[in-house]
């Protein structure tokens, strides 16, 4: 019984990681860059929904939508201003820029909302009793949202024209251009989707762990990045699996081993997995034929 409740809290936490990791992996897969500011977009999403609910008295769902809209716009602006001019630059320059954007967002939040943590009121309250286990509604919502997002993204990239164009850009931007695909617009769309997902993750995460600070997004951001690498970066099911597993490992490590060491255990598992499977759990290697 105890184990089950830890497992469910792990899956719930893992679902948040998975939603963030899906954004990371989409952007990495298509733009071939690690957007280290992704975690901070989560934090902005948290603050936007916090303001909408506390100052404008928006209901939770409307606050979520507002956060998604703002973060989508933010993602597109960040991509256009900070990353697009560096399309031909070395990946190191892009990486450093992404770290710069991350600090910029954190400090902007510090300036606007101050350093004092805000107490976030969950968008849904209450708990359900499932077979004697008490599970919070926000956990259920988070898990459901994660599965829906994963399925929708999978269908989007495998069935729609835009989704297929994204995969084409991911493989070979030059060849994609020769097909008539507008690579810049495709990358921009990817950032829009990734940032909207970050907003969802932000609202769900703050509903489950209701302390909101300018640095709230950075640790989950790094863990979700880990989850994406763990599952095989660039792979949508990989990000999902990696996120869920990471959440479970973290929750079980906290419960049975050590709260202080839980993060170290998570990263140790990552290192072991990468030693055995360098491409991640579901990462694939396609040989090139001549």
């Amino acid at each position: 019984m105890e184990f089950l409740s830890y497992l469910i809290s792990g899956i719930s936490l893992g679902s948040v990681y998975a939603i963030i990791a899906l954004g990371y992996t989409m952007v990495y897969g298509i733009a071939k860059m690690l957007n280290f500011a992704h975690g901070d977009v989560i934090m902005i999403g948290g603050y936007i929904s916090f303001c909408a609910m506390s100052y404008l008295n928006f209901p939770g769902w409307l606050a979520l939508i507002l956060a998604m809209v703002v973060c989508t716009a933010l993602g597109v602006v960040i991509e256009g201003l900070a990353y697009r001019p560096l399309r031909e630059a070395t990946s190191l320059a892009v990486l450093i820029t992404a770290i710069g954007v991350s600090y910029f967002l954190q400090n902007s939040a510090l300036l606007i909302w101050g350093a004092t943590p805000k107490v976030f009121s969950p968008i849904v309250e209450g708990t359900q009793n499932i077979g004697g286990l008490s599970v919070s509604n926000i956990s259920l919502l988070t898990m459901a949202a994660c599965i829906v997002i994963m399925v929708v993204l999978t269908l989007f990239t495998s069935k729609t024209k835009m989704g297929k164009a994204m995969r084409a850009c991911s493989e070979d931007k030059g060849a994609a251009q020769l097909m008539g695909i507008n690579v810049n617009r495709t990358i921009s769309t990817t950032f829009a989707i990734g940032s909207a997902l970050a907003a969802v993750a932000g609202v769900l995460m703050c509903s489950a762990y209701p302390t909101l600070m300018p640095t709230t997004g950075s640790m989950p951001g790094i863990k979700a990045f880990t989850a994406a690498v763990f599952g095989g970066i660039g792979s949508i099911p990989g990000a999902f699996l990696g996120g869920i597993l990471l959440g479970i490992i973290e929750a079980l490590a906290k419960a049975y081993l050590s709260t202080q060491l839980s993060n170290s255990i998570v990263f140790a598992v990552l290192i072991i997995v990468l030693l055995v499977r360098p491409a991640g759990l579901l990462g694939k290697y396609v040989p090139e034929k001549v």
Binding site: K164, L178, M179, E288
Partner: peptide, 22 residues
């Protein structure tokens, strides 16, 4: 292009669909 540069991780039919993108 030189070296063909087909989309190696996409199916044959998806490659053709990409050709018709415009």
């Amino acid at each position: 292009p030189e070296g063909r540069r087909v989309f190696l991780q996409m199916t044959v039919e998806e490659n053709l669909e990409m050709g018709a993108f415009t």
